[in-house]
Design a protein around this nucleic acid. Structure first.
Lengths: 334, 334
DNA sequence: AATTCATTTGGCAGCGCTGCCAAAAGGTCA
DNA sequence: TGACCTTTTGGCAGCGCTGCCAAATGAATT
């Protein structure tokens, strides 16, 4: 137990073969349940495997057979429930097919994403799953090299590299605006977080503003904090926004974390929801549906997106874009 | 573009060597910046690498050099912020040292954890990071095989296999009880989730009850739902608990998700907090600190735990248990 | 018993890279 | 100029496994 990863006495296939008194290829066939062998042989081999505590070496197996059972996944963050759900869906799908997820976090940084993609490709993964359609040119070039299938998840507003699984991001913003407009709200503000990093949040806002424009309106005011989204940032953003524009009758938040923060501010201040102020979020977050008044939001099938992306990427499906849709949840705050 | 992961025309080290007019080992040395070579040679090699778009094959490299730069991480869930934070910490640490995280989700199932460990070991990882100290015997046996360093995270209440990084789980329960007792609460209930799967939640409850016992008290009532924790389960659990035992003056929740659900129930019902009912959670969850009244809870350094576990496992540190401690956050609900 | 065919098995050449060693090239000094 | 030392370089044998092919075995048929 010296602490170094020296693999003291690793048992190899050849040793198992010798112990079982069969050839190496026979052991390999039995272990992979591939090709034919007699029941007697199988028992002999399995006995030796268990007795010696043999653990197959995927590194060698992959090298020999060309084509790994690894799948690279790059997400912007672990903390955002959106990506946690996507990862969950993807893991589920991978589990079934005997693949392993190699996961990296880009922290919403395209350069980090590029670096992660490069290092993942060096493991010759069967597929790479990414969030969104925005990548550096070099990342694109590496991915189109042809080695691995590529699935871009969550956003379908634009051309993809291979597989694209998601929903129309800008359209979610438009739908949110239409919902508020249909309920008669006219003096609408926006509370958001770092839009330069979170390009999908920026697309939602663009769609939202476009729909307001169609109705002859503009965003009355906005507060955008250059930091990641959180309950706190939503609360403080709404606080600032209302200080500047007390006459707003509705606020669109960049996501449900932010909206929950706004909701808490209203609770603390005794601001009547939705009569005095309507709130609209984005994500269908668990906690936002269970506040005393469920928060109006957009629900997207995130787990399904991860699952479908993984399935398609591993099934050899042709390059395509799959729109899984989204749903407006009316809630009680708008 | 037939969709199969065939790696159309993969460039190999040998091809780069030929293109640069040098030997294979020279290319290898330059690429790994290891051993000596002249500046002129380096430029020639790098030019060829870029021109051909060479991507090193880690599979082959690892096989040849014995010892991979993969680190296996098995967590019970992606959705629970605790593990998201631990993963974030671990990823950060791995990033710096040029390692890749291979992540699996056990869904709180020891058998699945065992299967994941087995399949990760077949990638000959440098280390394996796990949540908690509870594992199947076979999992333990595989892990002590010596191939990879092992770090068990979050819980230090018991013997570990190698490295253990966390805090005294039962003691968090005791501290929670002492806090409530010090504030004068005596009729205390518990609202929890699936304790057979979440063994750490069970340990917290055991500690909590032990501290009550020290004060000559017992848990007045409890509601335990056999499902994963969520805001909704906490809300409904408190609802049931209060229907049965309306005279409780405080409730301990299995975690902050659950406590937030309870808090929302109180808001809806107009139950005065903490005068009529005190609430105590566990986790130091973002949203629980931002409710109009911050929820009393225990904060643990989760990101730090992931980071430290990864660092120690990769640094060749001797087997040891590191207690990173925890903190009682008084909040406004107890 | 001889022939044919299907099933089961073993041998061995790589997969692409690294580590080791020996050889070549370059520098220094007498 | 030649001996000696240092730096740089190339060759090649594996790492542990899989895929291919040929050989051995067994069953069925004439």
């Amino acid at each position: 137990m010296d602490g170094r990863g020296k693999t003291a006495a690793t048992v190899t296939l050849a040793e198992v073969a010798a112990a079982a008194g069969v050839g190496e290829s026979t052991v390999s066939r039995v272990l992979r349940n591939h090709g034919s062998f007699s029941a007697k042989t199988r028992d002999r081999v399995m006995e030796a495997v268990n007795r010696l505590g043999y653990v197959p070496n995927m590194i060698a197996g992959t090298l020999a057979s060309a084509g790994s059972r690894l799948v690279g996944i790059v997400v912007p963050s672990f903390s955002n429930i959106v990506f946690a759900d996507v990862l969950r869906g993807a893991s589920q799908a991978l589990e079934g097919s005997g693949h392993q997820a190699v996961i990296g976090v880009s922290d919403y940084d395209p350069a980090r994403e590029e670096a992660l993609i490069a290092s993942m490709l060096s493991w010759r993964p069967a597929a790479i799953l990414l969030a969104g359609l925005e990548h550096t040119d070099r990342a694109r070039a590496m991915l189109t090299g042809g080695g691995a299938r590529v699935a871009e998840m969550l956003d379908i507003d634009g051309p993809g590299l291979d597989l694209v699984v998601g929903f129309a991001t800008a359209e979610t913003g438009r739908a949110s605006a239409r919902h508020l407009l249909a309920r008669g709200y006219r003096r609408i503000g926006y509370v958001g977080h770092d839009l330069t990093r979170d390009t999908r949040a920026a697309k939602r806002l663009a769609g939202f503003e476009a729909a307001l424009g169609d109705a002859g309106l503009v965003l009355a005011d906005r507060d955008v904090a250059p930091v990641p989204s959180s309950v706190e940032v939503g609360r403080d953003g709404l606080d600032r926004l209302l200080a500047r524009s007390p006459d707003l009758d509705a606020v669109y938040f960049s996501n449900d974390d932010m909206a929950v923060g706004g909701y808490f501010l209203c609770l603390s201040r005794g601001i009547a929801i939705p009569d005095r102020l309507a709130l609209f979020g984005y994500n269908g977050l668990d906690v936002a549906r269970l506040t005393p008044q469920p928060i109006a939001t957009i629900r997207t099938p995130r787990v399904r997106i991860g699952e479908l992306a993984a399935q398609l990427a591993l099934s050899g499906a042709p390059a395509q874009t799959v729109d899984v849709g989204f749903e407006v949840i009316a809630g009680a705050t708008a």
